[in-house]
Write a protein that binds this DNA or RNA. Structure first.
Lengths: 87, 87
DNA sequence: TAAAAATACTCCATAGGTATTTTAT
DNA sequence: ATAAAATACCTATGGAGTATTTTTA
């Protein structure tokens, strides 16, 4: 089952184009961010980032670009859900 | 962070009006289903079912009825996400 | 009393961490 | 050499189970 926390992390990584900077922003370790992205890639069955050259930044794959759109939608719907249920 | 697995479990419980029957359908224990619903209620900050009389069936609360609509939406969007990312 | 949910545990998987290794510049 | 991601390992938390208790019709 997909995990919304993984999508939230993915969103920040994609925005920052960096696991390390995303980790700093989230207040988590780089290791934890890496693990979450790996888990999301496994759940989705597709790589989300190009790692062949990873000195300066990482790049979204085609699947990653598609996933990014849905990350936004899912997180927005989750927020809407909380607001709607609480009334 | 909301958990999609909890919403999937919630959906079945609401359809069956029973933790026990939902557990049977899911192939999980009643205890596990109870725990997941309690977790979802905690995450949403609202009770989803009435437990005052729980011999024959349980009833959705007002918040539960609202949550049910979003459970459908969230799970559908999650499925759409997997399909879209995989292409 | 019977039936169903809640609770008390146990076990295992996973998210979190630190430290280290690998890789490309 | 440096900087960034991956990996190894540890700990804590949460989901899975079984067994039991509580609750109400």
């Amino acid at each position: 089952m997909l995990n919304l926390q993984h999508f939230a992390t993915f969103l920040i990584v994609a925005q920052r184009s960096s696991f390390t900077r995303a980790a700093a922003e989230l207040g988590h370790s780089q290791s934890s961010v890496t693990t979450q992205i790996q888990a999301l890639e496994r759940e989705l069955g597709a790589p989300l980032f190009q790692r062949t050259k990873f000195s300066k930044s990482i790049a979204l794959t085609e699947e990653g670009r598609r996933a990014l759109i849905y990350a936004d939608k899912l997180l927005a719907l989750a927020e809407e859900t909380k607001a709607a249920v609480r009334g």
